[in-house]
Amino acid sequence: MNDSAALYAVAGVILFGMGIYALVAYPHLLRKILGMNVMGIGVFAVFVALAYRGPDQPPDPVPHALVITGIVVAVCATGLGLTLATRLKALTGVAQLTPDQED
């Protein structure tokens, strides 16, 4: 892997880490859904970086095909997640996870 591809790949991994932190650390579902999206974008960046073969050669098509289907699936997961969050808000009044009841 050349330097610029490595930079992109590491940037993707950092995005993934930021996303997973937001997903775990914050109770609000909108933050979790956004965190999940940032994670997904990080994965796509890694895939695109891994597919890069330098300026003279065409990129590896297999990761590119995976990314393009992945983007659409990520949009679907976001839409479904947002609907679930809206439903939870309608039922409980809050769109976030509440601490477990301890009795």
Binding site: M1, A6, V10, V13, F16, G17, M18, I20, Y21, A25
Partner: peptide
């Protein structure tokens, strides 16, 4: 949150190492 932050940072380091 500090634990989650540390674990995320460790994950980033590990994944970067694996990719590079």
């Amino acid at each position: 949150r500090i634990v989650a932050l540390a674990l995320s940072a460790a994950l980033v380091a590990l994944l970067s190492l694996i990719i590079l």
